[in-house]
Each structure stands twice: as C-alpha cells, then as structure tokens.
Design a protein around this nucleic acid. Structure first.
Lengths: 202, 202
DNA sequence: TGGCCGCGTTATCCCGGGTTAAGAAGTGGA
DNA sequence: TCCACTTCTTAACCCGGGATAACGCGGCCA
C-alpha cells in the first residue's frame, strides 16, 4: 500500500462520482497503484513507446501534447490534482503513443498498469460500468472542444479557457495556453492586448 | 419484429465488432427496435427536445449539426448505412439536445429507446462492456478530429475528408463539407480551385 | 415554358492570425 | 553576481480565409 488512508478515501469518493464502487473492488484497484514522481519538465509518456500505464495526478500539473513533423507542438490538455492523465486514445487502441505528457511543475502521480486493470474489470459489472461512465465523460469533453473549434473565435476560446480553468492560468506559460486554443503565442499576446484595451475603456 | 432475418444477422455481426454479444441479449435489443423513415430534409432530432432515442442508419444519410445564435450552422458529422446517429453527448448527459439531425436523402433508421436500453444494460456485464467499447471508439474519433483542427490546415482537412469518406463526397452538398471542416463555402471553393490548378500543373 | 431558388464559383475588400525579428523582463544556473 | 535562456510583447509584413455581391447553372414547380 502506497497511499495514506485519507487519500485513499478521497480517491474512492472521487471515483464514486462515476458510479458505485464496492470496497472490495477499490481494494483491488488500490493494490495496482504505483506512485511516481516527476521533476518539472520531466516526461512520463512519449511517442512510439507502448502505453502500459494510466495515472491520476495527486499533485502538480501535466500537459498532454502532439508534435508535428516540423516540431510544432499542439497542447491537447492540462491535468491537475485529482484528474486523469494518459495517452488515452492510444491506450484504447493499444497503439504506440503519439502524445507527449510532461510535468509543468513537480508532480506526483499514482500510476496503474493497464493490463492489471483490464484483468480486474473483465468480469466485473461494476468496473465495466465505471469505465463506461468514465469514457462517456471524456467523450462529452471532447465534443465540447469540437464545438469550441467549430463555433468560437480564438478570442472566445481564450475567454472560455480563462473562465473554466482559472486555477491553472497562473501556472501555465502563456504560449502553451495559445497552443491549447489553437493559435500562436504572438496571436494570443495580441488578443490579450486587445481585450485589456477594450476592458479599460469600458 | 420489424427487421428481416438477414438484416438482423448483419447488424449482429456489426455490433459484435465491439465485443461478444449473446443471442439472448441480441434478441432483447432487437425487441426494442423501432423503424423510422425520414424524407429528404426531415429532422429527427432538434435542440431543446429531450433525447429519448438513438438510432442506426439502415439506408440513406444524415448530418449532425449545431446552429449558433446568428443562425450559422456547423456540421459535426455525417452518418451513413450501418452507422450510429444520435445527439450522443446530450444523451450521455441526459440533457436536452443542442444538435440538429437531418436527413440529406430519404433515410431509414432503426431507433432504440434509451431507457429501454439502459434497463437492459444495467445488469448485463456483456452489454456494459459493449457500450464501453462503443464509446471508446467514438472518443478516439473525436480525438482524431481534435488533432485535425490543431495540426492541419483547412486544405489538409479537406483532403483528409476526401480520402476518408469518398462514398459521401458525391451525396453531400459542398457547403456542408465546408462547414464540417470548419470553413465557409466560399473558402472551400477557393481551396478546390487551388488544388485543381496545382494538380493540373503536376 | 418561364420564373425561381439553391448551389457553386469568382472577384473585391478586409481582418485575424501566421511569420519573423527585435527588445524587455524575469529566472535559473554556474 | 553575471550570463544565458525562456517568456512575453510589439512591430512589420504576408497570407488564408471571412463577408459580400454578382454571375452562371441546373432543378423544380406553376
């Protein structure tokens, strides 16, 4: 056991949001957990490595991102305490990863081996249901993001981000926020200048 | 029973892609199915109506789209024979729909009541697992779309669409393809002109 | 048959954002 | 402490794509 009693309780409560999770199953899940520490800037997932673990962030902050052929990065997600971190699509497809995951600050993870989880879940109605609800919520989040790219301007996407993740704003370098909303750092800087000027006039 | 024996077999095979599906469960599912016909241009889902059904397209073609406050449409998806059609995110969240679904041609659907399916699945390991795999694939598809918006230009997105859905190209009005890839009809026309010119030179 | 409408194309003008470059401010390591 | 690096900003220039409008074409209906 690598997790303190109160933390285990908190995690159990968190997971129970998605559906019932018996004490017995929670015990078995917890037995799979391996803690892992990341230094600032350290990677815990890189392309072409097979995906063998997923993780919950205990503390700190990570970013998920792609890098294209010309070396340009596109940030897919930021994940903080209590949130899930993994190259999820590749894990689902059992394909080698094409995403990087990097710590933006000293970070503590709780990692779980995929095969271990699958073995547990294979014959458990409860865990299948939990896993289903879990993916469903991630699906909804992706669809929300699709909506933002289809219907919102870059400026609106930025304001949406500020409104939704205020806790991250001060810890994430601005050029990575720009990447997350699909524009360049220079463009975001201009947008911020525009917004600041118009709100000063108001 | 509203479905012919061979069609039922084909559907069973299709669903079995996602995982095992016993004959007994398939019978029960099939008993929930209600056929529905749509005329060209007809809607079968509209915003603010509660979502009570999902569907499989038997024949024809539908589009899923948003409409913003200024009346501008953004196409989320096209779905043809054998594919799933529903305001899925809203169905997951049990929220009133914010998407339109409209037939682009005379279309035959097989609809299923959500509550009926849920009741069936609630205590079935097999159906939970099937549903989980199903959402997982949809999640992967959304992430692929996120990737395209983050890393590809409009022209690349268009070529990607042509390569992936060639069977739809001739049946979908071009301005809706434009909307799907996130640009205006005028812009798509220009892109096509550009591509045609450069490929003529080659 | 004639008129109408939806669709695609093209032209013009404009704007948002990409690109490049330079400089200022902050940060961390030797 | 000082130097190097990262981050952010600003400016200049360019380009893709948005907005609008005009035109042509084909389908549809009276």
């Amino acid at each position: 056991m690598h997790v303190s009693e109160p933390e285990a309780k908190a995690l159990h409560a968190k997971l129970s949001q998605w559906g019932p999770l018996s004490a017995a199953n929670w015990e078995k899940l917890l037995a799979l957990a391996e803690p892992r520490s990341l230094a600032k800037q350290e990677f815990w997932s890189e392309p072409s490595k097979p995906v063998e673990h997923f993780a919950i962030v205990r503390s700190g902050l990570v970013r998920h991102f792609y890098v294209d052929a010309r070396g340009r990065e596109s940030v897919k997600a930021f994940r903080g305490p209590g949130e899930f971190s993994a190259p999820y699509a590749e894990l689902i497809q059992r394909k080698p990863s094409r995403t990087f995951i990097q710590a933006l600050a000293p970070t503590e993870l709780l990692t779980f081996e995929v095969t271990g989880f699958d073995a547990l879940a294979e014959n458990s109605l409860e865990l299948q249901r939990l896993a289903r609800r879990f993916v469903e919520q991630h699906f909804v989040a992706k669809e929300q993001r699709e909506y933002e790219f289809l219907q919102l301007s870059a400026e609106q996407r930025y304001q949406q981000f500020c409104a939704e993740r205020p806790e991250h704003l001060s810890h994430i370098p601005q050029h990575q926020v720009a990447s997350y909303i699909g524009i360049t750092p220079v463009a975001l800087s201009r947008i911020r200048a525009r917004v600041a000027k118009s709100s000063r006039r108001t």
